[in-house]
Simulated assay, not measured.
Amino acid sequence: MGGWMAAVGLWGIAYLLGSVPTGYLAGYLLQGIDIRTEGSGSTGATNVLRTLGKGPAIAVLLIDVLKGVAAIFLIPALSQPAVQDFLLNQNWAADPTQVLALPWLEVGAGLAALLGHSRSLWLGFTGGKSVATGLGVLLALAWPVGLAALGVFGLSLAITRIVSVSSILAAIAVPLLMVGTQQPLAYQLFSLAAGLYVIWRHRSNIERLLAGVEPRLGQKL
């Protein structure tokens, strides 16, 4: 029982990491605005670029990626008994990896971070599209897949200049890359679930694409 409680606790911490509202904080601290009322209403780096400019957008992008990386890296760190004892007053003495295999712990943390980014506890369960945080998770789980997905995104962006199209294509490519590189089953299932979630988060973008009014990189809505 202790191991399962530890696993849920670790996933909760990953959710809180993902929930850090980087884009919102950038808008509030730099211009005193609620970025959710600007542009697309997203708190992600693309809307920050449209609203605040390149510098803040790059900072938000990097921090959002690091949130995903940290969500995965915290698993081995917080699974150490000494750390558990310090943080949890010995309530989680059992190592969660004895109950759940490490890949499943990791993908649970990854999904929690994605959910936190798009449904932030601090923003009334609103947020971004989870693309940057998803990239961070991928880089931490299987960096070759993460880099390949980034390559798909970059190539598409260079051709189309449309961030949403590039994000959707990268989300489609990730499960194929996971299977092609023979990653653990947990990673493959994660990539499928996360890819579908990212595409679902782009519903409004897809509607604008079909209507022919989706802005290109640097353009305002």
Rank of each mutant, 00 (worst) to 15 (best):
L88P: 01
T43Y: 02
L121Q: 11
L192D: 03
G124E: 05
G2K: 13
P215S: 07
V83W: 11
A149P: 09
V165K: 02
G134A: 12
L52A: 00
A186N: 12
M5Y: 01
I13Q: 14
L87N: 04
T181I: 04
L29V: 13
K220N: 15
I33F: 14
Q219V: 10
M5Q: 00
P144K: 13
I75N: 11
A94W: 12
L221I: 15
G195W: 03
L157A: 09
S120T: 08
S156T: 12
G9K: 03
V145H: 03
G2T: 15
Q31A: 10
V107N: 14
V48Y: 11
S40H: 05
G127S: 15
H202W: 00
A101C: 10
V137A: 04
G180L: 08
I72A: 10
E214Q: 02
F73P: 02
A109K: 04
P215L: 08
Y15P: 12
V137G: 04
V174Q: 11
I35Y: 11
N91S: 14
V83C: 08
S167L: 01
V48N: 04
L88Q: 00
L210C: 09
Q188R: 11
V99F: 09
V152I: 07
R50M: 12
S79G: 15
L61E: 00
L61I: 10
V131Q: 08
S191H: 05
V99C: 07
L78T: 11
T97S: 06
R161H: 01
T160Q: 06
S156R: 05
P21D: 12
T160W: 06
L147A: 14
A140V: 06
Q80L: 03
F153T: 13
I206V: 10
Q98S: 11
L138P: 04
G134I: 02
A113Q: 02
Q84F: 02
A14M: 00
P175W: 03
R208E: 07
Q80I: 00
L150P: 07
G124C: 10
G218N: 03
I172W: 07
T43R: 05
V69H: 02
A6P: 07
G127R: 14
Y197W: 15
N47H: 03
T133V: 01
V145N: 01
G195H: 04
L138W: 08
G116T: 00
L150I: 11
Q98K: 13
I58K: 06
S19R: 09
